[in-house]
């Protein structure tokens, strides 16, 4: 089977580059607004709450709970189709509520979707995309 190349996130914008470089150094960075104090993710040009433009980066603690999830059996991309065929397991995509009160999208690894519950506690880990040195921030259920 010919390996299908994954699509890596674009890092054209400085904010995106800062976030993804943080991930490569095993940090998950959120933006905090110095005017209203709110945290936000994904990164953007302004505070989406107060429109302040003084944003600084803050590292998430890496703990959270599962708001909800799906087990993807038929994905939209050939890369993940191949991954599911090879592993014989669906990909678990989840909305995770971080302890910092920010909801993010990520993947839950090393888990049987039948065992997974809403509200389950999860913790951050980093995993290279197969065939690359590029890391993604993923989660696993904490003990």
């Amino acid at each position: 089977m010919q390996a299908v190349k994954p699509k890596l996130p674009s890092m054209v914008e400085l904010n995106d580059r800062t976030f993804w470089e943080g991930v490569q150094n095993e940090k998950f960075l959120l933006q905090r607004c110095s005017d209203c104090g709110r945290l936000q993710f994904p990164p953007g040009p302004v505070c989406r709450n107060c429109f302040g433009s003084h944003l600084f980066w803050e590292q998430a603690c890496g703990r959270g709970t599962i708001y909800s999830f799906t087990a993807i059996h038929v994905p939209a991309s050939p890369f993940f189709k191949q991954q599911i065929e090879t592993s014989g397991r669906p990909i678990i995509q989840a909305f995770i509520d971080l302890e910092e009160q920010v909801r993010i999208v990520s993947e839950i690894v090393d888990c049987d979707p039948g065992e997974l519950r809403l509200g389950a506690r999860v913790s951050l880990m980093f995993q290279k995309i197969e065939g690359t040195d590029f890391k993604l921030p993923k989660f696993r259920v904490s003990g």
């Binding site: 996130p9 909800s68 799906t70 994905p75 939209a76 995509q93 993010i104």
Partner: peptide, 23 residues
């Protein structure tokens, strides 16, 4: 979606709906 959702499984519209339907 391209940079912050699709790297985690690229489930497309069905995955986004599925997550909320489960709630």
């Amino acid at each position: 979606a391209r940079d912050y959702v699709d790297p985690f499984g690229a489930g497309g519209p069905a995955a986004a709906i599925a997550i909320t339907q489960r709630v």
